[in-house]
């Protein structure tokens, strides 16, 4: 493997154990700026744990994280966020009593902007995502789909070099998924960031990812282009159990 280099968020030999449970054991993962990398795997594979490690919320039991070639394993989640790693959560975790605009502004402020500049950035992102009309709505009044979109928008308001999105499409209907795919596909060009996308919906993954990394039982199973992954027998076995010749992967 290559040495830690610029323009990359890298995990090397990351292992995480919760008591007896080994959520991750020795995973290498590399996210480059400008790409969309899919992270897939069955429930409990360790995907969320990987995102937690990359964003500083979970100290790895062993292994290290580097950001643009600099070791960030010891930094707090807040410092990593400020260094340019934005993330969303599997459960949206919005600031519920605050408005949509304020939710985004918080992240913009966290990245160092003034209140006024933060508001401008927030409105710009909301506009782009078609959420401008909701800017002054309180988040506890949003529909489920909007909640999920706002949580992505908030991660972007940090103006991250790397955005880690944990199941952004879960619970969305087909039309919403389509719209979301467009948004995600555009992220690298628009924000110049790399995107790590966790998703169970294979249509979304196959549609927007340049590369896919497969986790199973806390270990890397495979990595490659969507076509390679689709064909990979080990992936099909792990992912779909024994009835591997199913149609879900082969959209």
């Amino acid at each position: 493997m290559s040495r830690p280099s610029k323009e990359r968020l890298e995990a090397r030999g990351v292992a995480v154990a919760f008591g007896g449970i080994r959520a991750l054991s020795g995973v290498d993962l590399e996210l480059r700026r400008g790409e969309v990398l899919g992270l897939i795997g069955p429930n409990g594979a360790g995907k969320t744990t990987m995102v937690n490690v990359l964003s500083g919320f979970q100290r790895p039991t062993s292994g290290s994280i580097s950001l643009d070639g600099i070791d960030v394993s010891k930094l707090t989640a807040r410092k990593i966020a400020q260094a340019g790693v934005g993330r969303s959560f599997q459960a949206a975790r919005l600031f519920r009593a605050m408005t949509v605009e304020q939710n985004l502004s918080v992240a913009a402020i966290g990245s160092g902007l003034s209140r006024k500049a933060a508001r401008e950035r927030a409105l710009e992102i909301l506009d782009w995502m078609g959420l401008a009309k909701k800017a002054d709505n309180r988040c506890d009044s949003l529909s489920y789909g909007d909640e999920r979109r706002v949580s992505i928008a908030r991660a972007l308001a940090l103006q991250p070099s790397f955005a880690l999105l944990d199941e952004p499409a879960s619970g969305m209907n087909d039309a919403e998924c389509e719209a979301l795919m467009e948004v995600i596909a555009e992220l690298p060009a628009r924000f110049g960031c790399g995107v790590l996308l966790i998703e169970h919906n294979m249509k979304v993954i196959m549609g927007v990812c340049q590369r896919i990394h497969v986790l199973d039982g806390g270990q890397s199973l495979a990595e490659g282009s969507p076509q390679d992954i689709q064909k990979n027998p080990a992936v099909r076995r792990a992912y779909l159990g024994e009835k591997a010749a199913d149609s879900t992967l082969a959209i």
Binding site: A77, I109, R154
Partner: peptide, 26 residues
């Protein structure tokens, strides 16, 4: 409370974890 500082601390009140992920220092 309407300043950047006020917004930041209110975010920590709502959700400490999400605030940290937004670069806010608790």
């Amino acid at each position: 409370q309407v300043s950047a500082f006020g917004l930041a601390i209110r975010a920590t009140r709502e959700d400490e974890v999400a605030a940290a992920a937004s670069g806010i220092s608790l």
